Structures are given as structure tokens and as C-alpha cells.
Amino acid sequence: MTLVRVTKVFNNNAVLGVDPVIGERVLLGTGIGFGVKPGDPVDPAKIGKTFVPTRGTPAERIARLLTDLPPEDLDLTGEVLADVQDVLGAQAAEQVLLPLADHLSFALRRMREGAPPIEYPLQWEVPTLYPAEVALARRALGVIERRRGVRLPDEEAVPVALHFVNAQLGTADMSQTVGLTRLLSEAVGVIDADLGTRIDPRSADAARFVTHLRYLIADLRADRGVREPADDQMAAALRAARPREWACAERIAALVGARVGREVGGGEVAFLALHVDRLAAR
């Protein structure tokens, strides 16, 4: 076992430690920070939970959340994520634990105080664009009801689903996910307007299109390379055979590029045109 040493003491129950193999971790445990100073070894018997700092959730924010969160709400969120981990994935579940616990603790406190439900934005867009994540969010509300005997308002499925989307995209910035949701909704609206049709958001083709756009936008934001078509002749043939669909794909690419601040290449236009063509056929 590698020796973890303290690099910063947040309080008696939380420290920042560094493992020579896996790097920095926020370590939580009763008395883990009592009487220790930077450079001291961490008592492994006192480590209760371990959290990985990220750019979006630095160590100081993790420590602050851990200090403010009731332990029972953190444990409840762990049970919620254990129930949906089969779909969400272990890595995403670990990443979303603290921000989701912070949100659920706030929602439960409002219920205890008798506060009215919050009217969250994107009540239509989120269920339409992220039906799988909304289904997981409703599962989560069911777990909370079974464990606490209270039913959070159905409106809470929207922010919980957005936390799940956040985790899958590997970001801790909720404002980015809200912006992504609005952009996806606009892109779907472009297809509706250009093709004179109404996309069924429950269809498999619509789900594939939205998923493709989600990861295209994430790649553009992260400045990761995007795909080029394997065959320029294929792209040219698609453009000639489906000019309306190609023009629609170009409009979507221009919209995405303008919002993200990066140009969407011709290769991605071809992939978008294939999605638009499938939706037009349906």
C-alpha cells in the first residue's frame, strides 16, 4: 500500500492528501485531520470516503461541500447513484456524487420548510432531448421516496437529469449543460423548419441525432479533433442526392459553430446530413 501524505488540512474531518501513484484526493473521515499537519502520513483506518478534485470541482469546493452537507444526505445520494449506476456508469456516478448531493440536500430542506416547488427552466426541452436521463432521474426520486418517505416534486427530475448529463459529458459546469440543451433544441428546430416536419423525440433516429450533436459540441468545446468523411466522393454524392438535407446540415453546423466559437468542418456536415436524411425519411 502506498503512503498517502497530508498536503492541506481543511478541518478535523477532511484533508487533502497526495498519493505518489494516483495523485491528489480529498479524504473524508472522522478525526482524519485532527492534530495533523502537511507532510504527515494519513491514517488509512480513518479514511471513510475519497473524492477526486477536478478543474470544475477543485479541492477547496469539495471540502466546503463536505463541511456543509449533512452526512445522511451524502449517504442518500450514494444510494441513489448505486441504483442508477448500471445505466449511468461507475465513473460518471462518482463524478456527480457531490454536486447531486448538494442539490438533493437543498431540495429536501425546502420540502421540510414547506417552500413551494421551484419552476426550473427547460421543462419541455430536457425530457424531449434527454429521455434516458429523465427516466434515471425519476428512478432517483423513487429511491429518495423509499428511503425518506417523502416525494420530491416531479419538477426535480429536470435538474437531476441535467446533473446526469453533466456527469456523462465529464463537466462540472451546469451552465455549459444548460447552454448545450438550448443549442440542441434550436438544432432540432432547424430540422423542423427546413423539412416542414415534426421530429418525434422518442424515435431512435432522433435519439441518435441528439447524441451525435451532444458529443460533437463537447469535442468542439474541448478542442478535440472531429471526424472527416472516409470518402470525399461519398460526401459529394450525398450532397448531390440530398441537397435539402445537406443544406439543413450546413445550417445546423453554422449554428453550432457560431455558438461554440469553432468552425465545424465539412466532414461533420456529412455526418449531420446523414442524420437529417434519416429523420426526413422517417
Score class of each variant (00 low, 15 high):
101 A>F: 13
101 A>M: 09
102 D>A: 15
102 D>Q: 15
106 F>E: 12
107 A>S: 13
108 L>G: 01
109 R>V: 09
109 R>G: 12
110 R>W: 05
112 R>I: 12
112 R>M: 07
114 G>M: 06
114 G>T: 05
115 A>L: 12
116 P>V: 02
117 P>Q: 09
121 P>C: 11
122 L>T: 12
124 W>G: 14
126 V>S: 06
126 V>A: 10
127 P>C: 07
128 T>G: 00
129 L>R: 06
129 L>S: 09
130 Y>W: 13
130 Y>N: 05
131 P>T: 02
131 P>Y: 01
131 P>G: 02
133 E>A: 08
134 V>C: 02
134 V>K: 01
138 R>H: 03
138 R>C: 01
141 L>T: 00
142 G>T: 11
142 G>P: 05
143 V>C: 03
144 I>M: 04
145 E>G: 06
145 E>W: 11
145 E>F: 06
147 R>W: 02
147 R>E: 10
148 R>P: 04
149 G>Y: 13
150 V>T: 15
151 R>I: 08
151 R>A: 15
152 L>K: 11
155 E>M: 05
156 E>V: 00
157 A>K: 03
159 P>V: 11
159 P>F: 07
161 A>P: 02
161 A>S: 06
162 L>P: 01
164 F>C: 05
165 V>T: 12
165 V>F: 04
165 V>N: 05
165 V>A: 08
165 V>C: 09
166 N>W: 01
168 Q>M: 10
168 Q>W: 01
168 Q>C: 09
169 L>C: 09
169 L>K: 11
170 G>T: 08
171 T>M: 00
172 A>D: 03
172 A>L: 01
173 D>L: 03
174 M>Q: 12
174 M>T: 09
175 S>W: 03
175 S>Y: 04
176 Q>Y: 13
177 T>V: 15
177 T>N: 04
177 T>K: 04
178 V>K: 13
179 G>R: 14
181 T>G: 04
182 R>Y: 03
184 L>G: 03
184 L>I: 10
185 S>E: 10
186 E>V: 08
187 A>M: 02
188 V>N: 12
189 G>L: 07
190 V>L: 11
191 I>K: 03
193 A>W: 06
193 A>Y: 07
194 D>E: 13
194 D>A: 09
195 L>D: 11
195 L>C: 09
196 G>M: 08
196 G>H: 13
196 G>N: 07
196 G>P: 10
198 R>T: 15
198 R>E: 14
198 R>N: 08
199 I>R: 07
200 D>S: 10
201 P>F: 09
201 P>T: 13
202 R>H: 14
202 R>S: 15
202 R>Y: 08
204 A>D: 14
204 A>L: 13
206 A>R: 01
206 A>C: 14
207 A>Q: 12
207 A>K: 11
208 R>G: 00
208 R>Q: 01
210 V>A: 11
212 H>A: 00
213 L>V: 00
213 L>M: 03
214 R>Q: 13
215 Y>F: 15
216 L>F: 13
216 L>W: 08
217 I>N: 01
217 I>E: 02
219 D>C: 06
220 L>F: 05
220 L>V: 11
222 A>K: 06
222 A>Q: 08
223 D>E: 15
223 D>Y: 07
224 R>Q: 10
224 R>G: 02
224 R>S: 04
225 G>C: 03
226 V>G: 00
227 R>T: 11
228 E>S: 14
228 E>D: 12
229 P>G: 12
230 A>H: 06
230 A>I: 03
231 D>C: 04
232 D>Q: 07
